[in-house]
Amino acid sequence: MSDSDMHQEAADLLASIPYFAQVDAQTLSAIAGSATRRSYTADQVVLLEGEPSSGLFVVQEGWLKSVKTSPEGREQVLRVVGPGDVFNAIGALASPTNPGTVITLEPATVWILQRENLLRLLEEHTGLAWMVIQALAERVQQLMSQVEDLSLRSVEARLARLILEEATGESFIRQRWDTQAEMAARLGTVLDVLNRALRRLAADGIIKVERHRILILDQEQLAAIADLDT
């Protein structure tokens, strides 16, 4: 791929992201010209917690997870990101180091906007600054909701909410990388506890677990578990 093609590819991707909705075409082209494209294999570390932040990352292809790991090696997934998502905004804007570790769940391609370039753009474009502030506020709300779930809701309730939030119609299609071990990490639990929760919901006729999907048989009851089991 030629440099001009890569430049246009980056510009097209950035133009589709709300962060850059208020940025004019000329500035967007300049941002794209300064961006760096990187590709990763599955299960590869993209960012390591505590290392100097290199900038803002935009996902072009693939899925990645942001995690915190306990001294005992237990992993808590903070967020899963896919095509069109942005990550490491806190590291790029508010902290000199990466706040978490990011690992690919499958082969992935990202574009990196260097921290220095991003800070300069925020000074020059108030529209972009407001979009970033809004996105950061939404991320804080998501983290607060996650803390509430982990503190106040049972694994079964967290599982019910995950299925409902990510289902299309009455079917929760699992990505290739979304093993039950990954689901357990996303829910802040361990595999045995997750399996028991799945079996209980299935035994009660609320869901049906298949190899690559979970069918919702009783959406009303599943919603009641997600909302009321605190």
Rank of each mutant, 00 (worst) to 15 (best):
E123F: 05
Y19M: 10
E148P: 00
A35L: 09
N88M: 04
S145V: 08
E166S: 10
G73Q: 08
S53C: 07
A202G: 04
G84S: 10
I133E: 09
G62L: 05
A223R: 15
Q26T: 13
G91W: 00
V147M: 13
A10Y: 02
A32F: 04
P99W: 02
S154E: 01
L201R: 06
L113S: 01
R211A: 12
V190Q: 15
G169Q: 07
L215R: 12
R211C: 03
M6R: 15
G127N: 02
S95W: 01
L105Y: 00
S16N: 07
H125Y: 06
T41F: 08
E220L: 12
H125S: 13
S54A: 13
I173S: 14
W177R: 02
S39F: 01
Q221P: 05
D149P: 03
M131L: 10
E61T: 14
V110F: 01
M1Q: 10
T97D: 08
R139V: 06
H212Y: 12
L194S: 01
A108N: 03
L47A: 01
I133A: 13
G100T: 14
A184C: 00
R38L: 14
S66A: 15
E123D: 11
K68V: 14
I214F: 00
S16A: 15
D85H: 11
Q22H: 11
R38I: 12
H7M: 05
L152M: 11
V140L: 15
Y40I: 05
I112W: 06
